[in-house]
Nucleic acid binder design. Structure first.
Length: 887
RNA sequence: GGGCGGGUAGCUCAGAUGGAAGAGCAUCGGCCUUACAAGCCGAGGGUCACAGGUUCAAGUCCUGUUCCGCCUACCA
């Protein structure tokens, strides 16, 4: 038989594009701003970099968001999933600079204006790549609302925030030590520096006293910075250095006289207890320098080359200079020793260049007052972080937050809305370019050339995308957003800052929940990175296995608090699952000829009642799990329900009915159940595997439109989908008996094609009745010739046995029994039982247990004890008989 | 230096609120049973890192030890 409805195997590529276009054209992802009855549900996408290509992190992040959005739509919510991209200052600038480099140009040759033009051009040409990739993943964003952190609206929001914070005194400008990337040629925030342990050296250098009498030995890992030293510091409590504070030191190589100062900061136990002070190139030295009013000598320039202040070392590269300084010191016999030393060095998170702490004039956000509210909001539960473990990390960082350096010396980004009057040096901060200086009325105003840290605009994302600073309907309806889904790697970069900005400007948290998911790693648990070459390309996976298989894999492995180790093998496994669904549907559609809207109230068979009950439980469990962001639980419930309950038991059990062996009435009611279960299962599965479910949905008679527009079965109040404990317990008895028989068949190597004769013995009438009632089902699924039900307990001549609850099953094996094999099987079974029995007996002998454990637990143990004993006795009797027969 | 997470079947991992150790893959045996061999039916395999403790009961809670991984920090 062949079905013209579905092909034999599922071919994802034929259907994915088709359905995505269908959804988009039908505007099925669109959120409504006027809807008054539906509950609003909103998520803002973590905007991927425009330069980005879809990686595993995106794939996981967006799959989870999409599952939530599709699920909430099916639950009847008015869902907004706000999409967009991030201008990614340094990253994007780097990309365009690289492109220019292939033409032999650098950005200075091109000039600022032309360069920015080039970036925009690049963006319009390549910037939608990541968006298209998200679409291949099935992301159901409201694409009509797509935003970009540099578009006009968002730029206005950025200026508004900057100006307001400046006026409130929460943004200031000043000369501080910052992290400088000589390659990117810009300042970096502390967060943007990545520390890495390096094998370096600790250089011990002799600093002679100016009176020619002795010296002080200092230790440093960066000898080139000594050229900028303006003091040597010792701890005031250090007895070795009593009285030195009145003496001067001659700085080697520079022949500059510098003071010896005392500061508690100096650790007496480290090195020689004497510390060279370079206020312009070390954050601590900078602080100490401030305390002691030391001069700041900047010897390393912004290009990483030595400045004129470095004397004869001028124009040398900083690392070359290190060598040269060491050589020069050696020559002067001022190098005491060099010892190998491990220490961590900061690197630029974008280009991995070793960063240089450097003195520079930058803009900062005063974060402490903003952080206070952000801490409060999590403490009082306005925003809930899931899993909770991350709240601790959040507090830790928020409590120790430092001012945020927000200016970057690059060109691509939001230029800082600050102007300096060239006449009187007045600084004007405003939303729009001022015409005249308010102080001197001068006309020569020069805008600050710096741009803002990319994260500054990202911090406004939850409200800037909805039209702020205008009071829009979108804001009114969708702010605060329902949940933010993100990886923990940007908890500080982004989440914390959105919290601060949202609370400050909107007066409310940006999201009610933050769901922090794991990182996707490679098979060995390593972070995927281009340099290690262990990157698995999600698009490749999609090409090979289909989007649905990939999405289901991600969901199944997204257990809270643990990293996802991705490998193709897993995806392959879930592709089998998709195919299984496909084939189950194919089978069902061979028989379903029309819509079966109503399930008859009466005369449902046991399996029909059973599968409806299991469906109900699956639906409840899936919604429960998704409400708690337990994606993997939801996935595994669906997997088990579909495969092991619906396919393995239900479809198999129902075949005789479908093939007309049980009359048309039964067939009709079973078809109605089959229709219902397939229908509802597609809805349950849809958030996880949207494409295949949509494809099948559209082949199912009686459905209209998209599966997206249907209703999650838990809310549908559909007929007869309900819990049925009685059907479940009866079914578990029948399946238990079938499994017992199959077990014997398997263990005794009896061919499946051989029909068996079986008798079921029980003293309990109710059991006999039930088994008799479902005799046909047992015969069918266990492949029997005949089944008899008895109360005698008389053992057949030669048989294998199995005990299920209060029933003993005999598989008649006259002529084909292998006595040795059966004896072996029974012995094994009995010893297994003995072990279990032992444990329960011990428990029941314990008076404390009987007294203190809850009644139901004790009751359960007693029941179990009874049934184990009966089982064991039964098997033992049979064993005795087999032994006698075999002998 | 602080903080966090993890060590459960050969492999990869599940095991909210403590009450009879689970899945997938891999392995072994039997099947082309009229949706699916990307399948079906069975089987084997774990002293839940180690040592203590709390409890009638601990993979699950507490303490310590040990081995991994990550985050964070200004020890030159």
């Amino acid at each position: 038989m062949s079905s013209d409805l579905l092909d034999k195997g599922y071919k994802p590529h034929d259907v994915e594009k088709r359905w995505y276009d269908f959804w988009e054209k039908g505007r099925l992802f669109a959120a409504s701003e006027s809807e008054s009855t539906k509950k609003p549900y909103s998520i803002v996408i973590p905007p991927p970099n425009v330069t980005g290509i879809l990686h595993m992190g995106h794939a996981l992040n967006n799959t989870l968001q999409d599952i939530l959005c599709r699920y909430r739509r099916l639950r009847g919510d008015n869902v907004l999933w706000m999409p967009g991209t991030d201008h990614a200052g340094i990253a994007t600038q780097n990309v365009v600079e690289k492109k220019l480099a292939t033409e032999g140009l650098n950005r200075y040759q091109v000039g600022r204006e032309k360069f920015i033009e080039a970036v925009w051009e690049w963006r319009s040409e390549y910037g939608s790549a990541i968006i298209n990739q998200l679409k291949r993943l099935g992301a159901s964003c409201d694409w009509d609302r797509e935003r970009f952190t540099m578009d006009d609206g968002l730029s206005r929001a950025v200026r508004k925030v900057f100006v307001t914070l400046y006026q409130e005194g929460l943004i200031y400008r000043g000369n501080y030590i910052i992290n400088w990337c000589p390659r990117c040629h810009t300042a970096l925030a502390d967060l943007e520096v990545e520390h890495e342990v390096h094998d370096g050296f600790l250089y011990h250098i002799r600093y002679p006293f100016s009176d020619g009498n002795g010296d002080v030995v200092i230790a440093t890992t960066r000898p080139e910075t000594m050229l900028g030293d303006t003091a040597v510091a010792v701890n005031p409590d250090d007895e070795r250095y009593h009285g030195v504070e009145s003496r001067k030191i001659v700085l080697p190589l520079m022949n500059r006289e510098i003071p010896v100062i005392q500061d508690k900061y100096v650790d007496m136990t480290f090195g020689t207890g004497a510390l060279k002070i370079t206020p312009a190139h070390d954050p601590n030295d900078f602080e100490i320098g401030n305390r002691h009013h030391l001069e700041r000598v900047k010897v390393i320039g912004e290009d990483g080359l030595m400045t004129p202040e470095a004397g004869k070392f001028e124009k040398m590269d900083r690392f070359q200079c290190r060598k040269a300084v060491v050589e020069a010191l050696k020559k002067d016999h001022l190098l005491d020793k060099i010892v190998p030393y491990q220490h961590s060095i900061g690197h630029c998170y974008r280009c991995n260049t070793i960063i240089e702490p450097n003195l520079s004039k930058q803009w900062f956000v005063k974060t402490k007052p903003l952080a206070k509210k952000a801490i409060e909001a999590v403490k009082n539960g306005d925003t809930r972080i899931v899993p909770e473990i991350w709240t601790k990390t959040y507090f830790e960082w928020m409590n120790n937050i430092k001012d945020w350096c927000i200016s970057r010396q690059i060109w691509w980004g939001h230029q800082i809305p600050a102007w300096t009057c060239e006449q009187c040096e007045e600084v004007i901060v405003d939303m729009e370019p001022p015409d005249t200086c308010p102080a001197c009325k001068g006309k020569a105003l020069k805008q600050d050339t710096d741009v803002l840290d990319t994260w500054f605009s990202s911090a406004l994302w939850p409200f800037s995308t909805m039209g702020w600073p205008d009071e829009t309907r979108a804001l009114k309806m969708f702010y605060p957003t329902s949940v933010l889904v993100t990886g923990f790697d940007i908890l500080f970069f982004w989440v914390a800052r959105m919290m601060m900005m949202g609370l400050h400007f909107m007066g409310d948290v940006p999201f009610k929940d933050v769901y922090v998911h794991a990182l996707v790693r490679d098979e060995e648990g390593k972070k995927m990175s281009k340099s290690t070459g262990n990157v698995i390309d999600p698009l490749n996976i999609i090409d090979n296995y289909g989007t649905d298989a990939f999405r289901f894999t991600l969901a199944a492995f997204a257990a809270q608090g643990r990293d996802v180790k991705m490998s193709e093998k897993r995806v392959e496994g879930y592709r089998h699952f998709i195919n299984k669904i496909w084939n189950a549907a194919r089978f069902a559609l061979m028989h379903i000829d029309k819509e079966y809207k109503d399930i008859p109230e009466r005369s449902l068979s046991l399996v029909d009642r059973w599968i409806l009950s299991r469906l109900y439980r699956a639906a409840a469990s899936v919604s429960d799990s998704l409400d708690g962001y337990r994606f993997n639980d939801a996935a595994s419930v669906l997997y088990n329900f579909v495969w092991h309950e619906f396919c393995d038991w239900y479809l198999e059990a129902v075949k005789p009915t479908l093939y007309g062996k049980e009359g048309t009435n039964r067939k009709e009611s079973t078809l109605s159940v089959l229709w219902r279960v397939l229908h509802d299962t597609l809805i349950l599965l849809h958030p996880f595997i949207p494409f295949v479910t949509e494809e099948i949905w559209n082949k199912l008679p009686g459905t209209t439109g998209s599966v997206m527009q249907s209703v999650f079965p838990i809310d549908a109040a559909v007929n007869n989908v309900r819990e049925d404990a009685q059907a479940e317990s009866t079914m578990s008895m029948i399946t238990g008996i079938i499994t017992g028989i199959r077990n014997i068949r398997g263990e005794m190597n009896i061919s499946p094609s051989l029909s068996l004769t079986v008798s079921v013995h029980s003293q309990e009438e109710s059991i006999r009745k039930t088994v008799t009632q479902y005799k046909d089902m047992i015969i069918n699924l266990a492949r029997l010739e005949s089944l008899s039900v008895e109360n005698t307990g008389r053992r057949p001549k030669a048989a294998a046995t199995s005990v299920f609850e209060n029933a003993t099953i005999f598989v008649h094996l006259e002529g084909i029994i292998d006595f040795a094999q059966e004896i072996h099987r029974l012995e094994k079974e009995i010893s297994k039982l003995a072990n279990e029995l032992n444990m329960v007996t011990k428990k029941l002998r314990n008076e404390d247990f009987l007294e203190k454990a809850p009644k139901d637990v004790v009751e359960k143990a007693k029941e179990r004890h009874g049934s184990l004993i009966e089982k064991q006795q039964n098997l033992q009797k049979h064993l005795d008989k087999i032994r006698a027969l075999g002998a």
